[in-house]
Structure formats: C-alpha cells, structure tokens
C-alpha cells in the first residue's frame, strides 16, 4: 500500500509562525491541495497581504509577490492583465481587505478580473495585536474596542461576500469556514471551484473563509471554534452567494 496522505507539492515544509489554533494553516493546505490537483503550480502567482499572512509565501512553493496593506487586488490585476495565462490569487485578511483595501477589492471584483481571492475573516486585526476590524462582531472586545464594538458608534460589521455579491459582474462569491472536518471539505470544494473558474477564464472568484484567532480573542482553540459557531456563523451565513450559472 502506498502513501495515502502527504504534504502537497505546493506546500513547503517551513515551520509555522501562526499561533496554536489559528486556521491559516488549514486554509494554506487547502489552497496547496487544490493547486496540486489542478496541476497549476508552475503557472501560479500568489499575492500576500499585510497582516499575519504577510509571510504566507514561506509556506508555498510557487511564485509569490508581497503587496502593501490592502493593495493585493490591484497587484493581482496588474499581473493578470499582462499575463492572462498565469493563475493568480490574493490571500487577504479582514483588516487588509475590508478596511484599507475596500476600494481595491470592490473595483477588482466589479471589473471581473479573472483572479481568485481567498478572504480570511477572523473578525480582528491579527498581526498588529488584536485591534477592531470592519468585521469585528457587535460587542466583541478588542484592543481598540475595550468595551466591546459599539455599533451605534462604528456601525455593524461588514458582510463583504454579500457586498460583492450585490455587484453584477463578479461571478463566484462564496462563504465557508474551516472549524470542523465537514466544513473543511466544503471550503476545499469552494476553493477548487474558484480556481477552476479562473482556469476556465470565466470570472472573478471570491472565497470568504470564516476563521478563528484564539490569541487575539483571548480564547483557547476549542473556545474559539465554539465562538465562531455561536457568534460568527449566524451573522456570516455560509454558502454560495453567487455562481456564474446564476449570473449568466
């Protein structure tokens, strides 16, 4: 009997810098598996954000660019426009994508750029130490909302997938999570679908992954999963918001 489980070729053997219980590692692996399965490693370029995943390129074995805060969709646009044959994806957190980079993501999606975005939403700024993000939940305590997010002052959290799905052009908008094996399988299917649409030159594809940040939430990994289930998922509903089939 041969090997039944091994590290994807697209994933490096670097020791992780992510915290215990962080779900970035799972999402990285899913992307690497999809890239292996589609056989596209040699023509893939990833774009890393600013945030915890700024070092994402350490864990992948294909070409990578490092963006400034929020600008990954503009960089991906630049790559894809001059090299439509390359497979391009941005990997962005919620501070990066939904705050400082909101302009870039909306316009890239609205132009129907033929790249893929993996949006990791863990409701907090991770790298800078747990500040409030546009996706922080109502009453959630962070280092800049020590009394909890007050929605009368800063509004309700932004549902990015819904916001992008309101645009006519973007083809594939989906939200999944990775807090259990069942959800991980669904998330992988979504990521594979997103890359497949890109491979077919079909549409812009966006996968939001509801994620955990035990360190900045001040929870154990298990508590973080439970909190995601109880607090985030009722607000950030999972599922396909838009597919090219429903758009066409």
């Amino acid at each position: 009997m041969g090997k039944t489980f091994q590290r994807p070729e697209a994933l490096s053997d670097a020791v992780t810098h992510y915290c215990p219980g962080c779900t970035h590692g799972i999402i990285h692996r899913l992307i690497a598996e999809v890239i292996d399965e589609l056989g596209i490693r040699g023509r893939t370029v990833g774009v890393a954000p600013v945030g915890c995943a700024v070092l994402a390129y350490n864990y992948f074995t294909f070409d990578f660019q490092e963006a400034a805060h929020g600008r990954a969709p503009a960089m991906a646009t630049g790559i894809k426009r001059v090299r439509p044959d390359l497979m391009v994806f941005t990997y962005q957190g919620d501070g990066d994508l939904a705050s400082i980079g909101m302009g870039e993501i909306v316009h890239a999606a609205n132009r129907g750029e033929k790249f893929t975005t993996i949006f990791v939403n863990n409701a907090v700024y991770g790298m800078t130490g747990g500040q409030m993000a546009p996706t922080t939940m109502p009453n959630q305590r962070t280092t800049t909302s020590p009394f909890g997010r007050r929605v009368d002052e800063v509004g309700m959290p932004i549902k990015v997938a819904e916001l992008l799905a309101a645009l006519q052009t973007p083809g594939y908008i989906v939200r999944q999570t990775v807090i259990s094996p069942k959800y991980i399988k669904r998330a992988k299917r979504a990521i594979k679908q997103a890359f497949t649409y890109q491979k077919e030159g079909r549409c812009y594809s966006f996968v939001e992954v509801v994620s955990t940040c035990p360190t900045n939430w001040g929870m154990t990994p298990m508590e973080a999963i439970q909190w995601t289930q109880d607090t985030m998922l009722p607000y950030y509903e999972l599922g396909e918001l838009k597919t090219p089939e429903t758009t066409d």
Binding site: Q65, A67, A74, T77, G78, R81, L86
Partner: peptide, 12 residues
Amino acid sequence: AVSYMIFGAAAA
C-alpha cells in the same frame, strides 16, 4: 491602485 497594478505587472 494604479501604482500597485504597475507593481504587480512589473514584478511579473
């Protein structure tokens, strides 16, 4: 955004 489109394309 344009300056980063330039960056992405130049880097590619």
